[in-house]
Design a protein around this nucleic acid. Sequence first.
DNA 1: TATAAGACCTATAGTTACTATAGAGTCAAG
DNA 2: CTTGACTCTATAGTAACTATAGGTCTTATA
Lengths: 152, 152
Amino acid sequence: MAKDRKDLIKIGELAHLVGVQVVTIRYYEKEGLLDKPQRTPNGYRTYRRTDVDRLRFIRHCRDHGMAIEDIKFLLKLREAPEKDCMEVNTLVDDHIKRLEEQLASLQALKSRLVELRGKCPHSGAISDCGILRDLGGQCRAALESPAPTTQS
Amino acid sequence: MAKDRKDLIKIGELAHLVGVQVVTIRYYEKEGLLDKPQRTPNGYRTYRRTDVDRLRFIRHCRDHGMAIEDIKFLLKLREAPEKDCMEVNTLVDDHIKRLEEQLASLQALKSRLVELRGKCPHSGAISDCGILRDLGGQCRAALESPAPTTQS
DNA sequence: TATAAGACCTATAGTTACTATAGAGTCAAG
DNA sequence: CTTGACTCTATAGTAACTATAGGTCTTATA
C-alpha cells in the first residue's frame, strides 16, 4: 500500500479543502477538537483523510451555530457507534429551543426599536428628539424593590 | 445621615436605584460612559442626580441592544441640544437594520436545524443517526475553488 | 472594646470563537 | 542568493461584562 506519501497533507491544504483558516485549525487543536497531528522533521503538521472528515464535521456543526463544547460532545458520541443516539437528539432539541428563545427576544427588541424610532420621524433639534427623551425615561428597577441593606 | 447634601450617594445606592451591579458602574466609568466621580476622603465614589439619569439612559440603550460605542455617541449628541437629531435617527435605523439581518439569519439557521432534527426522529444506534450522518456530509468549499498555490 | 458583617477599593483573569500581530524558521524557484 | 509562500510559536485583542483575590473603611453587636 503506497498510502503513507500521497495522503499526507499540510495545514494549508487542509484549510483549503475544508474552507477554514489555518489559524482556526490550530485553534481547534488547542481546544481539543482536533487531535495533535504528526509532524514532519521540520515541525510542520501533517494530516490525513480522517482529519479532513473530522474538520468538516466540526465546521458543519459551527455553521449550525453549535458551541465548541457541544461539538466536542458530538465528536465523542460519533466515536461510540453502538451507543444510543438519544443524546444527539436532545442536544439538537436544546439548541433549537435556545434559538427560539433568542429569536423571540430579538423580535421583541426589534418591535421596541421600531416603536422608539416612531417617536422621532422628523429632522429637528436634539432637544426635541423623542428618541433621546424616551431613552432617558424612568426605570423599572427603581420602583420595584424597597431599599438596599443600608437602611436606618 | 445628613452628610454634605442629601443628594450625594455612594456606588451601591446608585446601582440599586438604576438596577445594575456595582461592578458594571465601575466598568462604565472605565469605558468612558460615566465621568470619573468625586471621591470622599476615604476614596469612595460619590454620585449625584445627573449621574442617576445618565446611567439610566445608558441602561435603556443597552436594554435595546445598543453597543457601548453607539451609546457614547448618543451621550455626546444628548449634550448638544442645538444640533440636529438626524444622526440619532440614522443610528437607530442602522441598528434596526442590523437586527433584521440577524433575525433573518437566525431564522434560516433554525429552519436548517429543524430539518436536521427530522433526520433522526427516533431513538437508535449512533451508527444509524441521521443527524450525525448529515453533519458529516460534504462541504461546499471543497467543490467551489480550484486548488491552493501548492499545485503540482 | 473587640470583632464581625457589609460596603467599598484596586487589579487581574476569565468568558466565546476566533482574529491579528510579531518574530522567526523552512522550502522551492528565479 | 534573494524573494515569496508557507510554516512555526506566543501573545494580545475583540464585547460587555463577571468572577476572583486581597485589602480598607464603617457600623452594629457581643
